[in-house]
Design a protein around this nucleic acid. Structure first.
Lengths: 201, 201, 201, 201
DNA sequence: CATGAATGAGACTTCATTCAT
DNA sequence: CATGAATGAAGTCTCATTCAT
């Protein structure tokens, strides 16, 4: 039906380029990343990059997309199991460190780059907007689920709280980029989340 | 006694350059902003820029510094008056919209740029780190003050909650950059803050 | 075994750049030579120059180095054969014109540029210093050799005389740059050299 | 008859500019010297320079001219007294160090700059050419005078030897710029000059 | 398919010169 | 006369992209 082998090979090369590009973009930012640099880290030639991606911009978009999807998946995964209320609280409190730990450092750094870029790139912003709504929904559904179990008051605005959680997470990640220690952020997350949970119980 | 006129004049030009640069940096980002562009918007020649700032980098730093100081001042100002617990809660809930509204759009956009840049610029990171700690402290002192009034439980970790508030704020701002509506963010802030306040009361 | 073709090709381009640069540097001097100019004369683009040389400075250094080596080699070559004392005297007297004639005009002009530049460039000065000592030595060894043959008095300070010869040569070249005619310089060389040889015989 | 005071004042300013320019040109070369730099060292403003000299180039010419005249005068002075043949030889042998010592370092460095520049500046070359001939003549007349006293053979080509001396001097100065030690150069001068004198006696 | 040499647009920065005060 | 702020031409260097091999 289709040239499998060749296709697989191409996919592998593509993946190699993407990984290299992620590293570069996170380390140097969109503008200061050079195609030469990406090529070298991927052990390819500059020309080859253009066989797989039309331009530096496109490469960046693909990565953004990739990145966002992965984030959402991982989030859904981590939120999957909660049985008792104790589970809920401890899960929530530990979420930051859990999610953070399993996350590759590069992915978070590049996220920062992505947001900055999106502020002036409508196409990118659209993409991010869609993903952000999805992220909100994943969290919201989780909260709704817990509410149904009776862990939260019925009048809780889960939509608002969900985006609050996401924002809190992002804000703490940003803090870490500024040099705030991880333990500081973790503690902040725990206390704030505990307060929120207590407030809506 | 001192060259007032000349000095004032120079200050005015400097201010013009800074305003122009802020606009450019927010709109295009650090790298895609050109000195030519900044000069044009300031109605000056490229060369003149260099009479006032050593380089594009320095111009950026000065703006970062300016920006951070202004932010902190405005924060302190807004937190100044709280008498009753009702004040406290309504102040807190309305903080986001209040702070946000008075803030110039550019200043927030550039803040985004600043964080992204700081992730790979140690000098800038240091600056931001210092400022962030100060911001935390302003909020924390405010919380401590309210705690002493008996509005919060004595065992509240105000340090952690303070950075939680700041992170929440930043995260919501980021959301807005992605296209999330202001009303959505405001609502999210209100609900989350109300929950936190309830949780620590 | 090795990428001959590519290597040869690159060498050729490099050579083309160097030749162009020599012409430019001699004609306009280090500062007034532009990379654009060098590129055009070499029928290449500006960017290409930077594929072969890191900077204008480096290009200049490479040329200095090349130039000095070539000079020394040619000198050694020309001093190779002297059998009788008549040979010696006539060789010596004709040296200036011989060396001068075979030398490309540009190479001498650039030498002037090199010395001027070296007066304020320590790195360059070091390079020149080393080469100059080598040049002195080549001449000195030649003189020592003649002394052993008994053509000169045994108490001759060949080291001092050697550098005298070199200085005389350089000084006359300089004179020519100022517009003094070649025949004037040749005559001056002949008379002075004859006098020196007579003086140390 | 003329506005003396004002004139004197102007002359003083002019002199200050020239001195400053000499220092700058010797230290940095023609191109790398900035009018700003010259102005600062002269404790004047950039604009003032242009009240006294039409352009950077003109300033350089004036200095070249000054410099050459001074050189010739000092040479004539130093050659003024020679009575016995012993005087002659010892004067000649010590000439290099004498002339060198009384010479300001800057003046020699700038001489280097002047020659390099003249290689591509016809107007300057003309100036230098004229001066060089005058220098040759001063030395030649001196030699002729000594010849008449019977210190040299009658068939000596004093014209050629004179330019030989000058060239030797210049060449040794150039050597010093390359880092060759003064004592080395002095010794070289002595030996070579002694040889020449012996050769033509 | 892969390469990497070549291109050239475009960015930052400097500085001689002018001119209003 | 003196100043120094302003200008803008010009230079160095980088890098995304193309294309012949």
């Amino acid at each position: 039906m289709c040239p499998k082998v060749s296709s697989e090979y191409k996919t592998e090369i593509k993946e190699r380029i993407i990984q290299s590009a992620i590293e570069c973009f996170s380390k140097y930012g969109l503008d200061k990343t050079t195609m030469e640099g990406v090529a070298q880290k991927a052990d390819l030639s500059k020309g080859t990059l253009y066989l797989y991606f039309k331009s530096k911009e496109e490469l960046f978009y693909v990565i953004c997309d990739n990145n966002l999807k992965v984030l959402k998946e991982r989030l859904a995964q981590i939120l999957a199991t909660t049985k008792t209320k104790e589970d809920l609280v401890s899960n929530a409190e530990q979420f930051y460190e859990n999610f953070h730990r399993t996350e590759k450092r590069e992915n978070e750094k590049i996220f920062c780059e992505i947001i900055a870029e999106s502020a002036r790139n409508p196409k990118l912003q659209k993409m991010l907007y869609a993903q952000r709504l999805k992220t909100f929904n994943v969290v919201r559904e989780y909260l709704d689920h817990q509410m149904e179990k009776g862990f939260f008051r019925k009048d809780t605005d889960t939509k608002a709280i969900a985006s609050g959680f996401v924002a809190l997470y992002d804000g703490l990640i940003a803090s870490e980029f500024l040099g705030i220690s991880a333990s500081y952020s973790i503690n902040s997350w725990r206390s704030t989340v505990r307060a929120i949970m207590a407030g809506i119980s």
